[in-house]
Design a protein around this nucleic acid. Sequence first.
DNA 1: AACCAAAACCAATTCGAAATTGGTTTAGGC
DNA 2: GCCTAAACCAATTTCGAATTGGTTTTGGTT
Lengths: 224, 224
Amino acid sequence: MIEITDATVLTRLRDFLATAALPDDGRLPPERELAQSLEVGRAALRKALATLQSEGVVWRHVGKGTFTGERPIDTVADINAMVQRTNPLEVMGARIAFEPEVARCAALHATAGQVAEMRSCMLKAQQAPTWRQYEQWDNRLHRTIGEASQNSLLLGLLDTLNAVRRAVTWGRLRDTPLRPPADHHSFEEHARIVAAIADRDGAGAADAMRRHLRSVESHMRDRL
Amino acid sequence: MIEITDATVLTRLRDFLATAALPDDGRLPPERELAQSLEVGRAALRKALATLQSEGVVWRHVGKGTFTGERPIDTVADINAMVQRTNPLEVMGARIAFEPEVARCAALHATAGQVAEMRSCMLKAQQAPTWRQYEQWDNRLHRTIGEASQNSLLLGLLDTLNAVRRAVTWGRLRDTPLRPPADHHSFEEHARIVAAIADRDGAGAADAMRRHLRSVESHMRDRL
DNA sequence: AACCAAAACCAATTCGAAATTGGTTTAGGC
DNA sequence: GCCTAAACCAATTTCGAATTGGTTTTGGTT
């Protein structure tokens, strides 16, 4: 067996990468297979791959394979991982940071139909006979505001945030009054948010949402 | 076999729900098993379950099972779905809405170590010999800002946003100059953001980040 | 003794068939 | 005609085998 230098292996690998027809996800053949087809040993190939990985040309993962390009951040938006890592106060903090900006975008982009739906959700929340149904309409209202931003990515992030929020607060049954009291603070706060959005007042909508969420946060702290 | 009325089945089911020790995810036993233990037929049980489902008491899904409570919104934050639905302009819009608020939180919560890391990333981005390495340090800088918010959920949402962003812009290789020019606009903008964060100036940090992203957006539009 | 290549082993992940679960239809009894 | 049980179908989960990268061991050569 003629001795093959590290440089030769690296050159063959680069040539391979420059010419091979790879699948869409940029996945290379398995090391054992690639070593064979390049006529080099697996250990030498692994050395060359390590070099390319340090240059950001490829990335490798046990059990998955070897891929061209930079290693993606592991954000397979894993909701369960987020739920394990966070807590109710963080959730409130994230909501206070994020949702006013969603409301701001909604004020600039909402359709008349969406504003009408916000009003409908708001009224139904007020008339809800049980807490559970109140929360259904509350959720519907907040999501309609996200839809009204006309930005599917913002909506996706809002949905992610809400999924985490529900999981974090899961099991917290309200064994208190059957339904929200008539003077439930959120009613007036919802009305202010929706009015600002209807008025196309971005700053007003963001401010009203921020006040609403700080109010929710304050009530939440009272219950701890 | 004594005839069992629908009302009886429903009562037994409600009693079961009121007393059973269910797993954390609220999953009920499989229909066939539950029918047996309640001593009712499966068809009758299914009828009762349908009633409870219409009341929002339980939800059912083929292949998964039957669970207490409301059916969760399908927000298994699916990054691929987000990528399919969005576009570069939406990504920029979402960044402009979201990242200034992350910077604001970072200004209030960053540790000295994190500020030092931001500075390091900033300098390394400036000195990067290739666009690829510039982008690595740029990404690192933005993520450190997210970490500095000390809110794992905000960081999770930022990571999600960045994963979508990379997927949406994937394949856009920079075949232009080998490295960023010395007067690349982002350098000064990065410096302003980091300075505001170090100064604990939340509004200043948010404003600097917003300006930076609007600048990026503007350059992006110039390239379309 | 040092080095290298191949083989063996280990940990993480994927794959696919079988099993499970809700949804629907069919068959048989009253 | 109605009801019940059984059979069938579609969606999902489960689990062992296979695959893939990472590391160690073995054996040969210098």
